[in-house]
Nucleic acid binder design. Structure first.
Lengths: 118, 118
DNA sequence: TTATTTATCAACCTTTCGGTTGATTAAGAA
DNA sequence: TTCTTAATCAACCGAAAGGTTGATAAATAA
């Protein structure tokens, strides 16, 4: 699992923009060039190119070569890393119930749930 | 599922900061006051207060009252909404295989996977 | 070679973010 | 009432985000 703080920073930041999320959605249907990705938006191609660089730096996408084209590909592994981080905490309620169960059943107190990440 | 674009913006942006993720981690072990949340950090209490406001505006946390204290609580439902968004795309590979299976089995072409979100 | 296509680089601008310090509000305790 | 505790508000600052336009690079096509 990803736990490097700056990697999480850049990945979550990359998803915090509707244009970039839309690009992710498009790429989930297959690779695309910058021109193809820019087409649905009203902003300049340069602006879209920058968005792609943000996604690439966050390792949410990768790029290949095809003549002058630089096709962009989704990297689902990085998305999985993000759900893995979130799941640590979204499942906490359930975990606390499990702890409570353990306490009730063993009649021992104090099952200290240690924290993770930074 | 959450699909309002600005709600996703604010939620992902809120997670794109190590201090705020650390606060989420702390809250997963139970509610805490601003002073308690500020204690592990070297930044001012006002700065932490602002971070909490960012989390609150993103609906990742809620607040209650206890005399002068304003305890902060995690809202796991919002975290679930984010994994739900991500899972649309991180599971795409699998979805494409499913589509491929369908094509192979039905011998009909063109099962157009329509896009969602903006 | 020259022209075209694809994409990036560079400089610039405006807005937002993350932090600071100092003043203020609100509730309880003495 | 006065003092203390808990937290926010307000003004300010530097850095980064997201956009623009114009110039440039790199590969292909004519």
């Amino acid at each position: 699992m990803i736990s490097d703080s700056t990697a999480l920073d850049s990945a979550f930041l990359a998803l915090a923009d509707p244009v970039r999320r839309s690009i992710i959605a498009r790429l989930s249907r297959g690779p695309a060039t910058v021109n193809e990705l820019a087409e649905p938006f009203e902003i300049s191609k340069q602006a879209v190119s920058k968005h792609i660089q943000v996604l690439e730096q966050a390792q949410l996408v990768t790029r290949t070569r095809d003549a002058q084209r630089r096709p962009v590909h989704l990297n689902p592994a990085r998305l999985e890393a993000l759900t893995a981080w979130i799941d640590q905490y979204r499942l906490v309620r359930e975990g606390q119930f499990r702890n409570l169960d353990a306490v009730l059943q063993s009649s021992a107190g104090q099952r200290g749930a240690k924290a993770k990440e930074q």
